[in-house]
């Protein structure tokens, strides 16, 4: 890997980190709903664009790990949940790109974006599993079913809600992947950039 590729990985990782730190703080202060999904979508778009200009195996994962490390060494103290989420999102997107043999087709970008952003749905579950133990996720599910009964909703309401939220995240992630591919094409045209 040459210095140009490493510089690109570092700077795109830094950009993802800036998004997480600056925009994340602003969204949290404004109590914006689904801010994790929004941050994941923007972050994975940045990472996919960056990885497109460093055609090497593990480029996207490196960008994600740099962003996660910036959260780890951040001035505001390590944010455990964010660090883990960024690393897992990058890993999922890298795995999707690898499954497509690192071909730069739009489909691979869309699937990588969708997989990364979908993780946002399961991340709180991982947190509950870690803090509450194996029984906690089942307890949440029972509580959701009781809440549905109390609200006179059908028994399938919690599952339907989960599916809806999952589809929403898949749509946002797919849009992020699609946007990343479009941006890569525009950047190549406008700046006559090559692959370093």
């Amino acid at each position: 890997m040459n210095a140009r590729q490493i510089a690109r990985l570092g700077l795109f990782g830094a950009l993802w980190g800036v998004v997480e730190i600056s925009l994340g703080a602003a969204l949290q202060a404004a109590h914006v709903p689904m801010r994790g999904t929004l941050l994941a979508a923007i972050g994975i778009t940045v990472a996919l664009v960056g990885a497109a200009f460093v055609p090497r195996r593990g480029a996207l994962l490196t960008i994600g790990l740099v962003a996660a490390a910036l959260r780890l060494f951040g001035l505001s103290g390590p944010a455990i949940s964010s660090v883990v989420a960024i690393a897992i999102e990058a890993l999922l997107a890298e795995a999707c790109l690898a499954a497509f043999g690192y071909r730069r087709c739009r489909a691979s970008y869309v699937i990588a974006g969708a997989a990364a952003v979908l993780w946002d749905l399961f991340h709180p579950g991982l947190g509950a599993l870690i803090i509450g133990g194996p029984g906690m996720v089942a307890s949440f599910w029972r509580a959701a079913n009781k809440a549905a009964q109390a609200l006179h909703l059908p028994d399938s309401a919690p599952a339907a809600l989960m599916v809806t939220l999952g589809l929403l995240r898949l749509a946002v992630g797919s849009a992020a992947g699609w946007t990343a591919h479009t941006l890569v094409q525009q950047l190549r045209r406008r700046f006559a950039l090559d692959d370093a």
Partner: peptide, 24 residues
């Protein structure tokens, strides 16, 4: 990172740390 074949991670992280304010 070197042990898991992610070469150049240290330099990339150094560049990222130095570039945070400039990027902002």
């Amino acid at each position: 990172a070197g042990r898991v074949r992610l070469r150049g991670f240290g330099l990339a992280l150094g560049i990222a740390l130095n570039s945070l304010d400039a990027l902002r």
